[in-house]
């Protein structure tokens, strides 16, 4: 999740929709007061190598995470990431958690951006990436579909029957939509990694 006061947008990160690519690209134009939640051990290390650190995401966990990140200590980073997920304000934060952090006024005025993809493709993508060959693939796919349900997207951008996102980056039109987003937010034309 990114909340950029500098550019007036909030990026709500759904799952399995190229959200990390979008987040990495948008991170490069954020200011010191913007909120950048951690992405995960590997991506945060990559982002830190480029001089970009997560920031302003937690009053209690941030110092610990940054200390661990600066030491490139994965073992210390992981428990903080788990605590952050439990707190609700993590990479895939839902609207209410974001609203609580950024405040009602900015929440209302910001362009809320989300990426989305056909749920069948999201389910398959998740199943392929998480498959460890310890069970038959069909069984694993059943677990992804019927139990994990990471493909559900609407809770990130529909509240009380109303669509709260003002801009969608569609996975099947990723580059085109991202270019339109940069244009809409008056950002330089950014490249998706």
């Amino acid at each position: 999740m990114i909340a950029s006061r500098k550019h007036g947008f909030i990026f709500i990160k759904t799952m399995k929709t190229a959200g990390t690519s979008i987040e990495l690209a948008l991170s490069t134009v954020c200011g010191p007061d913007d909120i950048l939640t951690p992405i995960g051990v590997e991506h945060d290390r990559l982002r830190a190598d480029a001089g970009i650190e997560p920031r302003n995401f937690s009053d209690t966990l941030e110092a610990r995470y940054l200390k661990a990140l600066r030491k490139r200590n994965n073992k210390l980073m992981r428990p903080v990431l788990r605590e952050l997920e439990a707190s609700g304000l993590w990479a895939h934060a839902l609207p209410d958690a974001i609203k609580a952090r950024v405040g009602r006024k900015f929440w209302k005025s910001a362009v809320k951006v989300a990426s989305e993809r056909h749920p069948y493709e999201k389910a398959l993508s998740r199943a392929y990436h998480s498959y460890r060959k310890t069970t038959p693939f069909a069984e694993h796919l059943d677990r992804v579909v019927f139990e994990e349900r990471f493909y559900i997207g609407h809770r990130y951008y529909i509240q009380g029957g109303k669509v709260i996102a003002g801009f969608f980056v569609r996975h099947n039109l990723l580059n085109e939509d991202f270019a339109r987003l940069c244009n809409r937010l008056a950002l330089p034309s950014l490249k998706l990694p």
């Binding site: 989305e116 056909h118 749920p119 069948y120 493709e121 389910a123 398959l124 796919l141 059943d142 579909v145 019927f146 349900r149 493909y151 559900i152 997207g153 609407h154 529909i158 669509v163 969608f168 569609r170």
Partner: peptide, 30 residues
């Protein structure tokens, strides 16, 4: 292979039930 063809009919039906609002919003095929 399209995702639709890998998933079973019961898996597709379940996903559709869970994701009805986004199917409607984006006009996706079931």
């Amino acid at each position: 292979t399209p995702a639709r063809d890998v998933l079973s009919p019961s898996q597709r039906d379940f996903i559709y039930e869970q994701c009805a609002p986004e199917f409607e919003l984006f006009g996706w095929e079931r």
